[in-house]
Design a protein around this nucleic acid. Structure first.
Length: 205
DNA sequence: AATGAGGGCAACCGCAAATGT
DNA sequence: CACATTTGCGGTTGCCCTCAT
């Protein structure tokens, strides 16, 4: 409680960056909460981790996004929704934060979209509850438009967590339906999926 | 020159999952 | 097995810079 207040917030200074970099150079990354204790840095572990991942890591690419990167992000977002870490994993040198910021500030405008207008479906149990509700709606509704709307809540968005047989079947069914659309819309995009956690959907498919 | 608005981006927050004890 | 701690994620906030007035 009191300890929380001892941590500094706001932008990092060059000196703080150097301390963090030196610590990671010597000890490697991880054990972030130990860093303030060991180095005397007035930053919480979470902040240290974020600073490393989003800025200090040598793998982070600086500067503007190329057209190729933007195109890739748009296609992946179309497929995955707001799953920035997954998208960033397929855009070399870019962090989830960079991708998210670029999407919200540039690409949304470019595409004429409202900010954050896609439904986010994650991997938690809470999200699977949402999925089941969507599934129930879908199976009880034969209306083609409602079906299309539900399908837009992309089954791939939920395919990397634990799923029951019913959920797996549902994902399988809808993935099969969606596949031709993805191929038509984004030729070659499915190649990107090879090492995502979509085993379940693929196996069932 | 002052200042207010808006954009861009780094960093924070809250939550959930994963891991450790 | 239960609880504590750490890690990771997505949404949001707020600072800084630029530009129009």
């Amino acid at each position: 409680m009191e300890a929380e207040n001892q941590y500094k917030k706001g932008l990092w200074t060059e000196e703080e960056d150097q301390i963090l970099l030196e610590h990671i150079r010597v000890h490697g990354r991880g054990k972030w909460n130990r860093i303030p204790k060991v180095t005397g840095l007035k930053r919480c572990g979470k902040s240290c981790r974020l600073r490393w991942l989003n800025y200090l890591s040598p793998h982070v690419k600086r500067g503007g996004f190329s057209e190729e990167e933007e195109d890739l992000i748009i296609r992946l977002h179309n497929l995955l929704g707001n799953r920035w870490s997954l998208i960033a994993g397929r855009v070399p040198g870019r962090t989830d934060n960079q991708v998210k910021n670029h999407w919200n500030t540039h690409l949304c405008k470019k595409l004429g979209l409202k900010k954050q207008n896609r439904k986010v479906v994650g991997t938690s149990k809470k999200h699977f509850t949402q999925l089941e509700q969507t599934n129930n709606t879908l199976s009880s509704n034969s209306d083609a438009k409602a079906r299309e709307v539900s399908q837009n809540e992309n089954p791939l968005l939920v395919a990397d967590g634990e799923a029951s047989n019913g959920e797996a079947q549902w994902m399988s069914n809808h993935f099969a339906e969606s596949l031709p659309l993805f191929q038509e819309d984004s030729p070659g995009l499915l190649d990107f999926l090879d090492d995502y956690h979509f085993d379940l959907a693929w196996q069932s498919f």
